[in-house]
Amino acid sequence: MTDPTFATRPDPARAAERDRDLKLLLAVLLALLGVTMTAIYALALNAGAAPRLADLALARVPQTGVDNPVTAVLLNYRAYDTLMELAVLLAALLGIWSLGPAPAGFQRSGPVLAGMVSWVVPLLIVAGGYMLWVGGYAPGGAFQAGALLGAAGVIVRLAGDPQAGLPGEAAQRWLLVLGVLVFTLVGLGLMLFGAGFLTYPPKLAKWLILLIESAATLAIGVALAAAYVGGRPTATSPLDPRPSAQPK
């Protein structure tokens, strides 16, 4: 990060020396802080409330509709956090989009890479689906699945498609909001039927969570891939020809 206020320094040699001293001083201070915090942390571990939420959280898992305790926390006990976390991702992407159109893509791939891409991408998508499904009873879930989809997008962009294989802008926008939208609507629907916001009836919990997770997976995948693209989708804009069209 460049800071204009510090741009001019009178004497570089002395300033550098002072800089180094400052860095060292800071290092010593922070090291002391680290040691102190470790001591305090040890105290907290020893005297702290040992089971914390673990036993309670594990005990209630059978009522959550899923078997993986982490998924239970993410999508049931603390579903509201997850909803807002999806909103954070959306906000970051909207921020990226607000900064301008996507930069140029990559040169087209050679045969070896293309060969790899042609079967890594489907594999990633399959793995994503697997992650999503497995999340109900074993480690995995929407975020990991979405990250795999996003990685698929990354590799597609690396292989030469500047839009990372994403659909047009309108579709992208809908896909992006899909996760939060389904999540919120399910929550509100439950509230409307008297259960309370994001309070799943045990019988429906499994399916509602799966629905939310599927939507979230798609949204996360699209958001991560679009974040890697790094700007507004350009294909729809006649002013910006797709950079990959330029022969190089």
Binding site: G110, M116, W119
Partner: peptide
């Protein structure tokens, strides 16, 4: 298999 493919491709690209 996956590791092999990725490794091969990677080595190839690196070498190239």
């Amino acid at each position: 298999v996956l590791v092999m493919v990725a490794g091969a491709t990677g080595s190839h690209l690196i070498a190239k």
